[in-house]
Amino acid sequence: MRNYHDMGGQPAGPIDRHEHELQHWEKRVEALIAVLGSKKLTRSDEGRRALETIGAETYLGSGYAERRIQALANNMILRGVITIEELSNKLAEVEQRQNQLP
């Protein structure tokens, strides 16, 4: 069965050729992947595998950096670099900080 990411040869519309300057947070996603890669804590094929199991809705409905960061987080949990609890606590902290801003 064809997975959602395996789109070579599928029908699609015209290509949007607009240039898109990466936003800073998108660069940080790439930087995180690069630094973890240099420390042998992630690999590009591993990143792709995580993207391929992230679910069609997330994959097809997210921007590139958006799905990459979620795939990376999943891989860090799978590798035991971080735990689900640590990440969900940190996410809650980030959200709380955000809510406290004026």
Partner: peptide
């Protein structure tokens, strides 16, 4: 996803 980037990086 942006919160995720911040959270993962800080962690």
């Amino acid at each position: 996803p942006r919160r995720m980037e911040i959270a993962l990086r800080e962690l």
